[in-house]
């Protein structure tokens, strides 16, 4: 069972890395600024998925902390940039 789990975790890691590449390509050729911002948000969520999978693979608690910080910072950053795009000011 442990072998199966390890194989599945490594496969999910490779899988999410491939999806990350697709999302980055989408950011590079986005149609509008909001489109690119959506791509950046998706990239940050996929990085969070990668960090959680690395935490599962190595069994270290530390990577969950990093995932938490990534989630909080990307949330605030995307909200601020969306408001900047709509209003041409942040506050």
């Amino acid at each position: 069972m442990d072998d199966i789990l390890n194989i599945v975790i490594v496969a999910a890691l490779i899988w999410h890395a491939a999806l990350l590449g697709v999302a980055l390509w989408r950011v590079a050729r986005g149609e509008s600024a909001v489109d690119r911002l959506l791509g950046v948000e998706l990239v940050s969520v996929l990085i969070l998925c990668l960090l959680v999978l690395i935490a599962l693979f190595t069994g270290q608690d530390l990577y969950m902390d990093v995932a938490l910080i990534v989630a909080a910072l990307s949330f605030i950053g995307t909200l601020a940039l969306a408001r900047y795009l709509a209003d041409q000011r942040m506050f």
């Binding site: 509008s32 600024a33 909001v34 489109d35 911002l37 959506l38 948000e41 949330f75 995307t78 909200l79 969306a82 408001r83 795009l85 709509a86």
Partner: peptide, 16 residues
């Protein structure tokens, strides 16, 4: 959902 809402609002207001 909060981020999705903010992005949809920004898209609508910038005229996408």
């Amino acid at each position: 959902p909060a981020v999705s809402h903010a992005l949809a609002s920004a898209a609508y207001r910038t005229g996408v």
